Amino acid sequence: MSEQWNAFDVTVDDGIAEVSLIGPGKGNAMGPDFWRELPELFKGLDTDDAVRAVILRGAGKHFSFGLDLVSMAGDLAPVLADNAKAKPRTEFHDMVRSMQAAITAVADCRKPVIAAISGWCIGGGVDLITAADIRYASADAQFSVREVRVAMVADVGSLARLPGLIGDGHLRELALTGKDIDAARAEKIGLVNDVYATPEELLEAARATAREIADNPPLVVQGIKTVLDHSRAPAQADSLRYVAAWNSAFLPSNDIGEAVAAVFEKRKPKFSGS
């Protein structure tokens, strides 16, 4: 692949693609470029015969801080207005569905995707790794389904895909509290397959697994993914449709306005339940 990306760095070598998140700032936050480019990138990887496996990682010390609220605030503003009617709510629904489709492009990629997670993996970062086939972490990794802490229902993948990975009880604990968990806890509950001592050992392990996959018959590998996804994909798609409609109806609130203001003002939000 020869395309130039704003939110990603992509290399392909001997059947293995490495995709690095290079979003703005030190935490690879997910801004407009990320959401626009992600589906195009993974659809390209899906059809590229030179690619047999994909490693997904973050540039620098962290995987991703999640949604870039600062750069996305303009897209949220119309639906958060006190008098938001059908048009801004419909446009917000379309935006959520587009963001969901971006993450789903990773899940739908017929080339197996290995997420290699170091540092923070927050909110949208968790949405993204749930779409991968295999997840490895370094010991410094920390995870948070944090949307509840900014007055949102997670709506681009975590609530749809995490039940099949960590079970209902663990998911409810993470989603309802927004708590942070470390790599050891993530491995214990099944969020990640294995934990490695350092980011360097993590990347070495991800590359070794990608090599094992790439050396197998490519059509059979794709067939395994297709069969495994056959029964779970419809339930995930239904969950994604429902949460997009729910958020379009109920997301506007004083609390989310307070959450956004708190981000800009670098303070703790004070929620009122209104």
Results as ranks from 00 to 15, higher is better:
Met1Thr: 14
Met1Ile: 13
Ser2Cys: 08
Gln4Asn: 13
Gly15Thr: 00
Ile16Lys: 00
Leu21Lys: 02
Gly23Ile: 04
Pro24Leu: 02
Pro24Met: 10
Asn28Phe: 04
Phe34Tyr: 09
Trp35Asp: 09
Arg36Asp: 09
Glu37Phe: 03
Pro39Val: 03
Glu40Tyr: 04
Lys43Gly: 15
Thr47His: 03
Thr47Gly: 13
Val51Lys: 02
Ala53Arg: 02
Val54Lys: 03
Ile55Arg: 06
Arg57Glu: 11
Arg57Val: 13
Gly60Pro: 01
Ser64Ile: 00
Ala73Cys: 01
Ala73His: 06
Asp75Gln: 07
Ala81Arg: 13
Glu91Ala: 14
Phe92Leu: 01
Ala102Phe: 01
Ala105Thr: 08
Ala105Arg: 13
Val106Pro: 04
Arg110Val: 11
Ile117Gly: 02
Ile117Ala: 08
Ile122Arg: 08
Ile122Thr: 06
Gly123Arg: 03
Asp127His: 14
Ala132Gly: 06
Arg135Ala: 10
Tyr136Leu: 11
Val145Glu: 10
Glu147Asn: 11
Val156Met: 15
Ser158Gly: 09
Leu159Glu: 01
Arg161Ile: 08
Leu165Ile: 15
Arg172Ala: 15
Leu176Val: 15
Thr177His: 05
Thr177Arg: 13
Asp180Gln: 12
Ile181Asp: 02
Ala184Asp: 11
Gly190Ala: 02
Leu191Gly: 11
Leu191Met: 01
Asn193Pro: 02
Asn193Asp: 14
Val195Trp: 03
Tyr196Gln: 10
Pro199Thr: 00
Leu202His: 07
Leu202Val: 02
Ala205Gly: 09
Ala206Pro: 13
Ala206Leu: 00
Ala214Cys: 06
Asp215Arg: 04
Pro217Ile: 06
Val221Cys: 08
Ile224Tyr: 00
Val227Thr: 10
Leu228His: 05
Ser231Phe: 10
Leu240Gly: 03
Leu240Pro: 11
Arg241Asn: 14
Ala245His: 09
Trp246Ala: 08
Ala249Pro: 01
Leu251Asp: 04
Asn254Glu: 15
Ala259Met: 11
Ala259Tyr: 00
Ala262Arg: 03
Val263Pro: 02
Val263Trp: 06
Pro269Gly: 09
